[in-house]
Write a protein that binds this DNA or RNA. Sequence first.
DNA 1: GTAATCTCTCTAGTGACTAGAGGATCAAGA
DNA 2: TCTTGATCCTCTAGTCACTAGAGAGATTAC
Lengths: 143, 143
Amino acid sequence: MAFSIGELARRADVKIPTIRYYEQIGLMPETLRTEGQQRRYGQPAVARLAFIRHARELGFEVDAIRTLLSLQDKPDHSCAQADHIAKERLREVDQRIASLKALRKELKKMVEECAQGRIGDCRVIETLADRSHSHKDWKEAVG
Amino acid sequence: MAFSIGELARRADVKIPTIRYYEQIGLMPETLRTEGQQRRYGQPAVARLAFIRHARELGFEVDAIRTLLSLQDKPDHSCAQADHIAKERLREVDQRIASLKALRKELKKMVEECAQGRIGDCRVIETLADRSHSHKDWKEAVG
DNA sequence: GTAATCTCTCTAGTGACTAGAGGATCAAGA
DNA sequence: TCTTGATCCTCTAGTCACTAGAGAGATTAC
């Protein structure tokens, strides 16, 4: 019934150091150890890790995941907070998509206008050098 | 004609430590110093910094920018490499947009199905806990 | 001359991991 | 029981592109 960190890593498809890292930052609880200090896990660890991974796949930050995990343990609590966190994330994703689309437009223009000739006439370089230009909030688009 | 790092920061709309950082990693060249070791810049520094910032806005990595900057100084060179770098970036952006759209779809479903009731019935929490699920290449979508 | 502002270097922190060193432990076969 | 090879342990440092802060020195305006 008790398996090693390597086995947990396989079952949840998460790398071993990541599991230790999650324990360190408190996303995964400290677990049983053998006499030789090796970690041993049970089925609930797999479920919790899968929850965390899925949340990370959706881009939730560790702090948000911490909250979501704690909510999970209170079935009778209102789910308003969980809903709020998810809506926030949706808003972020929408914004990110919009920023990336703007980026894409400019990149596409650059690439399409490039005549594949000399650097001196290259629209890619020219566009980058063009100073009459300023984005706001670009940092959220590039990451 | 020679101005300080603070003035350069204002003109190019880049923070002072960022300028020093760019010098450190070789994106900006070492520049004149006063007797007291303070940096002094001229107009070309503003142009170069603007080039870098614009490239960062478009999400080019520092290594790519290094290449683009070196190309800029060879007007008679073919622009194939610049074109290649830009096309690569466009591909990345396209992929990222696609990943984010998939994410968005799942988030939207979660949020819409949430009945705003008890955690025990919350689709947000349920969806996250659902283990019958695996994305490939999600890491490029969440960043 | 003096005060206010600016700048210097250096170190460390961000987020969410990932990689490696150097050594201990475990499970399985002989 | 012993050995071998795989796995595991902790700890430190690295990733990317910055950003923040300490403590000291330089410059500029008056």
